[in-house]
Amino acid sequence: MWDNDDLPGAELSGAELSGADADGYIRAAMRWHFDPETGSPFWLAQAASLGFDPREAVRSVEDLRLFPTVVDQLRNVRPEHLIPRGYGDAADIVGVYDSGGTTGAPKRVVFLDDWLQRMITHMLEPLDRLGIPLGLNWLGILPTGPHAVGHFIGLAARARRGLMYTVDMDPRWVRKLIASGQTAQADAYVEHLVEQSSHILLSQEIGVLMTTPPMLERLARRDDLLAAITRNVRLIMWGGAHMDADTHDLFRNEVFPGIPLHGVYGSTMIMGGASQRLGDTEYPIFDGFGPHITFRVVDPVSLERVPYGTRGQVVTNHVSRSMLLPNNLDRDTAIRVPALPGQPGDSLGDLAPVQVFGSETVIEGVY
């Protein structure tokens, strides 16, 4: 059994892990995921076609690049086949969640509670450093089922001892409307989200607002909503659609001055999110949660790392007791930024989507 105490550095935060601890964690993960007694049916079936034994060949975070990208198979795989056998009957299943479907049919993963609790703890850690008090009420204008983010935010509000208000968002419908040229209908749907949000923002004391950059822009168009946010909100968390440096500065310094603006780069294929680096930076920078969530920024053709300060395509890795999703060439580009001390992999600056991924045009829409 893979107990936390058996993993070098497993109970440490990502910023505290040394490279040696992170690599030891990866070796333990390979033993877990590829032992017939503990691995998942999905990965044990993949093992025969890999051409190498991960328990011998994968010795470090860098060696995760040896794996093929398998995430497209998650469009059709049965989620129960993703659960490692080592959990036995003790697998505490939180739920099955979809990717956004931006690049075709959605991919599907299963979340177990041990990973989810660790992810929530990591996601909330910056709030203490930002001085955000406990007991604030939260409003999430976000996708709920079948997407994981709505579930995450509800747990985050509960952990921070606040009430959770929600406005459900269907980003797939918005993308479909935009792709078919029905921009007026897409705009009407976004206005519908604004109207629902207004009933909460104008009648309740919301201390934490979590939504996307397009929704922040639409909320700020209304003077009454902007006044309510300025009066009550102590923290704006943003994610989903990307935010460029100019928009980030505009929101932070002119539209919502005095309210901390904190981003989360979330993805179903990393089973969680990467937090925005605190402090003044030239553009939003997102740091991994190593060794669980790590990034490489590469040339999309050669797949070799680009120099620091250069834009490339993002490769993501997720390695935990409950899931293995290595070497996924993502739909996003970023500027390669040195990681924080002790953190494996790269950090991501000024994230932006590619225009075409595979054969699909990438449309962010409202999320």
Rank of each mutant, 00 (worst) to 15 (best):
residue 239 G to A: 11
residue 283 Y to D: 02
residue 251 F to D: 00
residue 250 L to F: 04
residue 221 R to M: 13
residue 222 R to V: 07
residue 231 R to V: 01
residue 277 R to M: 15
residue 274 A to W: 04
residue 246 D to K: 13
residue 255 V to H: 01
residue 259 I to A: 04
residue 265 Y to W: 10
residue 260 P to C: 05
residue 224 D to E: 11
residue 263 G to K: 07
residue 230 T to C: 10
residue 281 T to R: 09
residue 236 I to D: 02
residue 241 A to G: 13
residue 270 I to E: 07
residue 223 D to Q: 13
residue 258 G to E: 00
residue 262 H to T: 03
residue 274 A to L: 14
residue 274 A to P: 04
residue 283 Y to M: 10
residue 230 T to A: 14
residue 234 R to E: 05
residue 252 R to W: 02
residue 243 M to S: 12
residue 279 G to A: 12
residue 281 T to N: 08
residue 273 G to T: 05
residue 247 T to P: 05
residue 255 V to G: 01
residue 223 D to V: 06
residue 222 R to I: 05
residue 247 T to S: 13
residue 248 H to G: 01
residue 241 A to Q: 09
residue 283 Y to I: 03
residue 278 L to P: 05
residue 262 H to D: 03
residue 237 M to P: 05
residue 223 D to E: 15
residue 242 H to P: 09
residue 242 H to Q: 13
residue 240 G to R: 03
residue 229 I to S: 00
residue 263 G to N: 05
residue 279 G to P: 13
residue 264 V to S: 09
residue 269 M to F: 15
residue 249 D to V: 06
residue 222 R to F: 13
residue 276 Q to P: 07
residue 242 H to K: 11
residue 264 V to G: 06
residue 261 L to P: 10
residue 285 I to N: 07
residue 246 D to M: 08
residue 251 F to H: 02
residue 239 G to F: 06
residue 257 P to D: 03
residue 228 A to M: 07
residue 249 D to G: 08
residue 239 G to E: 05
residue 263 G to A: 06
residue 282 E to Q: 14
residue 245 A to I: 03
residue 254 E to I: 00
residue 278 L to C: 08
residue 279 G to E: 11
residue 237 M to E: 07
residue 256 F to H: 01
residue 264 V to E: 09
residue 285 I to P: 09
residue 265 Y to V: 04
residue 243 M to H: 11
residue 248 H to F: 14
residue 222 R to L: 12
residue 265 Y to K: 05
residue 271 M to V: 12
residue 242 H to I: 06
residue 238 W to P: 01
residue 228 A to F: 05
residue 235 L to G: 04
